Amino acid sequence: VFVDDHLLEKVLELNAKGEKRLIKTWSRRSTIVPEMVGHTIAVYNGKQHVPVYITENMVGHKLGEFAP
C-alpha cells in the first residue's frame, strides 16, 4: 500500500496529539489507511483543495477518487 511519507507523518502526528484539523495535500495517489479515519483531508483536484472527510468505508481507496 502506498502513502506519501509527508502525509502519513502529518496524520500520525495529529493522532498522537489527539487533534483533528484540516490537512492539505497534493498527493491524490496516496491510499487511504485506517490511521486517517476521522480526519478531514483537503485533496487538490488541479484547481482547488476539496475537503474530504475520511470514513471507514474509504480505507483501501485512493484520495484522488474522492476529489473529482
Results as ranks from 00 to 15, higher is better:
31 T>S: 11
4 D>S: 05
12 L>F: 07
34 P>T: 12
47 K>L: 12
51 P>V: 11
16 A>Q: 12
11 V>F: 03
62 K>Q: 11
59 V>Q: 12
52 V>F: 07
3 V>M: 04
18 G>C: 07
43 V>C: 06
59 V>G: 06
48 Q>A: 13
28 R>E: 03
33 V>H: 06
64 G>P: 00
8 L>F: 10
37 V>S: 10
15 N>F: 02
60 G>L: 14
26 W>V: 07
34 P>A: 14
14 L>C: 05
61 H>P: 01
63 L>E: 00
6 H>N: 08
23 I>Y: 01
40 T>R: 08
26 W>S: 13
29 R>Y: 13
63 L>K: 00
68 P>C: 09
12 L>M: 11
47 K>Y: 11
18 G>S: 06
38 G>F: 10
43 V>N: 00
16 A>R: 13
6 H>A: 14
15 N>W: 01
45 N>G: 05
65 E>F: 12
47 K>T: 14
29 R>C: 15
1 V>Y: 07
38 G>P: 00
11 V>G: 00
27 S>H: 04
2 F>E: 06
39 H>I: 03
8 L>G: 01
48 Q>I: 13
30 S>K: 02
51 P>M: 06
7 L>T: 01
22 L>E: 10
33 V>W: 03
9 E>P: 01
18 G>R: 05
18 G>T: 03
56 E>Q: 12
45 N>S: 06
17 K>I: 12
10 K>C: 13
68 P>D: 08
58 M>K: 15
67 A>N: 05
41 I>P: 00
18 G>H: 06
65 E>S: 13
68 P>Q: 08
6 H>V: 15
20 K>P: 02
53 Y>P: 11
36 M>D: 00
15 N>V: 03
33 V>C: 09
62 K>A: 09
6 H>R: 14
4 D>V: 02
34 P>S: 12
57 N>M: 15
24 K>F: 15
51 P>W: 04
36 M>Q: 02
5 D>K: 15
47 K>V: 14
5 D>G: 15
4 D>T: 03
31 T>H: 15
6 H>M: 14
45 N>R: 08
25 T>S: 05
50 V>I: 15
13 E>W: 09
58 M>I: 14
1 V>T: 09
20 K>A: 05
39 H>Q: 02
54 I>G: 00
11 V>W: 01
53 Y>H: 08
57 N>I: 10
24 K>Y: 15
5 D>F: 15
4 D>C: 07
42 A>L: 05
46 G>L: 09
52 V>W: 04
38 G>V: 01
8 L>E: 01
6 H>Y: 14
29 R>P: 09
62 K>S: 10
35 E>G: 07
30 S>H: 03
9 E>N: 14
44 Y>G: 03
24 K>R: 11
64 G>M: 12
6 H>P: 03
39 H>E: 00
47 K>W: 08
3 V>D: 04
18 G>Y: 04
13 E>F: 08
2 F>P: 04
1 V>L: 07
46 G>K: 09
8 L>M: 15
54 I>A: 04
58 M>R: 13
34 P>I: 13
65 E>H: 10
12 L>Q: 10
53 Y>T: 13
1 V>D: 14
61 H>W: 12
56 E>Y: 14
52 V>A: 06
18 G>E: 07
41 I>T: 01
57 N>S: 14
21 R>P: 07
43 V>T: 06
46 G>N: 07
32 I>S: 00
46 G>E: 07
23 I>E: 01
61 H>S: 08
40 T>Q: 07
28 R>D: 04
46 G>P: 02
5 D>H: 15
40 T>M: 11
1 V>F: 10
9 E>S: 15
40 T>V: 09
45 N>Q: 08
39 H>W: 06
1 V>S: 14
7 L>F: 01
9 E>Y: 09
19 E>I: 13
30 S>C: 07
11 V>A: 01
35 E>T: 08
9 E>T: 13
66 F>D: 01
33 V>T: 07
40 T>E: 05
31 T>A: 13
40 T>W: 07
56 E>A: 13
63 L>Q: 00
48 Q>Y: 13
8 L>A: 02
8 L>N: 02
30 S>M: 03
2 F>A: 05
54 I>V: 08
